[in-house]
Amino acid sequence: MKLREIAHSRTGDKGNTSNISVIAFDPANYEFLREQVTADRVRALFAGIVHGDVTRFEMPTIGALNFVLKEALGGGVTRSLALDAHGKSLSSALLDLDLPQAPHFPKSDAEMTP
């Protein structure tokens, strides 16, 4: 299955650094995300785009991961040659990640927002 089926994501930019959140639709899948979506996998996925470190921060209280990608925006939003200088579309590439079957999919009994 695809990451997109169990999580959503938004990209943010500051200077030459991009951050990409990965948020479980169902918080019950958070542990599964934590095991599967590692900093190494994200680094490998964006190997051609991101030239610096990839760090992962964990947010268990909201069932989310936050990836910080250094040297990811062509020298910085204000001077990049890229069509998407902010790297706003990177989240869509990450959501295409292949995963094994998630334990709580379709939805678990846990509360879910529409």
């Binding site: 994501s9 943010g12 500051k14 951050n19 959140s21 948020i23 947010m59 909201i62 936050n66 927002t113």
Partner: peptide, 30 residues
Amino acid sequence: ATCKEQLLYEVHDPANYIQPDVVADFSKVT
């Protein structure tokens, strides 16, 4: 879901959100 996406938008380390008035910690937010 809309609030969680914005919570992490342009945040690096959620425990160290540096502002001129305070270093905020969002890491335990619910």
